[in-house]
Amino acid sequence: MFDVSVQAMLGEFNLDASFRSESIVTALSGPSGSGKSSIVAAIAGLLTPKRGRIAVNGRTLFDSEARIGIPAQKRGMRVVFQESRLFPHFTVAQNLMFGRWLAGKKRDAQFDEIVALLGIEPLLSRRPRKLSGGERQRVAIGRALLAEPQALLLDEPLASLDAARKNEIIPYLTQLVANAKIPVLYVSHSRDEIELLAQTIVKIDGGRVTEIEKRR
């Protein structure tokens, strides 16, 4: 599912990480500043590694030797960022429809289904700034899911939330991940979340993979 090998110098930080995972849900785990988000950015196409190769679900997204570098907007890697990054000038509904609209899709049954699954129906006409942190993250997850994802990259989606908000989202997340038909990369430094969700755990420290653990 994920075949990643990236080398990059980010200021003083040297990222040199390689891992392979055939699990549908792979976790990327490690302390803050270990390079997790940089790996996500490289997979998403927001960061160009100096060297390496990135393939997701058999599709090569980046290969420095073959000079392949698919632009971010054509990768289909939908990212849920830690700080949700909802578009402040759009309503929740417009945020949810953003990627779907770009893909030429309309508001349809799948839209209603995901909105219901995430319990964000009452929020549709609101602006992101009027939402709580937990609501924002649910909308961000919905926005990624509705954008015809080829893979889902969840970059610490719960890290900015307090325990109560975390508990509010985890049921949605587990349900979503349990039904996942596309590869999911789940980035977190929380052991609990990872054990709940992932089959393969890739541990990162100081920009390097220290251990790959298979579970179940």
């Binding site: 907007q73 990768r75 578009f87 990627g99 770009l102």
Partner: peptide, 11 residues
Amino acid sequence: RLEDASRTLGA
């Protein structure tokens, strides 16, 4: 970062 988010959504 909002521009990055937009690009990952296909824009």
